[in-house]
Amino acid sequence: MDWINLAFSIGGATIRMSAPLIFAALGGLFSERSGIINIALEGKMLAGAFAAAAVTTLTQNPILGLIAGGFAGMLMAIVYGIFVINFKANQIVVGTAITILASGTVPFVSQILFQNTGSTPEIPIGNRFIYTPIIIAWLLVISIWCLFKFSPYGMWHKFAGEHPDALQTSGIDVIRTRWSGVLVSGFLAGLGGATLSICLSSSYTRNMTAGRGYMALAALIVGGWKPITAALACLAFGFFDALGITLQGIQIPKPEFSIQFLNQIWSFFVSAQFIQIIPYILTITIVAGFVGKSRPPKALGQPYLRNR
């Protein structure tokens, strides 16, 4: 029986599908731990996806493409940071605006560079990453865990989100800490987008992130704003996605119950559509507090006023 084959296929798909989510969730972690809500992840990923594909096409070098993707995400983060940190604008509103800005700007730049608003030219298979970004993602999970656990830099970020006044009194600038959180977040989200366009597929296509920025945010919340649990939540999301994909394609063994009603229940729970909504049901359940309490940083979403 090809159960082993099936398990390998699901496992491979899980790891691939979760990689961009992990990048974006780690990005969200950086900014949210330092007190800035990051609903703009989607827009930063989109910018990263485009920049990576465009630079790889122009230079024939995927490493440059990956870096460019990160910096494009960072560019969006700079715009975001100016508004939410320096001008103290509402973070949800600006975040949404950044996502819309990215989905409009990217086709515009694409039209200038490639005379095509829909997609960039296809990148040949030799110029694409096979698995490098996936490894980078997991290395980042561990290193960011260490960073938050052991280094003072991680501690500053935690305090900027939990109790900014305490951080300021101890002589560390809150504004500067938050800026670094937002910039790193943009870079990581950009890498997530780059993974999508130059590793998991072969070109940028319009709105190719397809809601992954929001899914990463949900994974971050499910994971309780901690790097390893957030990455595991991403892996779970990827797993349900992969399961839904595989279940659409195969005939599921159907046990024959004597009661007709049980048969219906069974076919409902193994249907691909049901499997696909599991991540969202999971998120709602966990966030609603039934499974475990997921506590956000205390000062999340509050702009910091230095002379309060």
């Binding site: 798909a13 691939r16 599908m17 961009p20 999508l196 998991l200 597929s201 072969s202 070109s203 296509t205 319009r206 709105n207 190719m208 397809a210 996605d241 992969a242 994909i245 659409q248 394609g249």
Partner: peptide, 9 residues
Amino acid sequence: NNPTKAKEL
């Protein structure tokens, strides 16, 4: 607009 998922399918 979801080539990544189509590829996995």
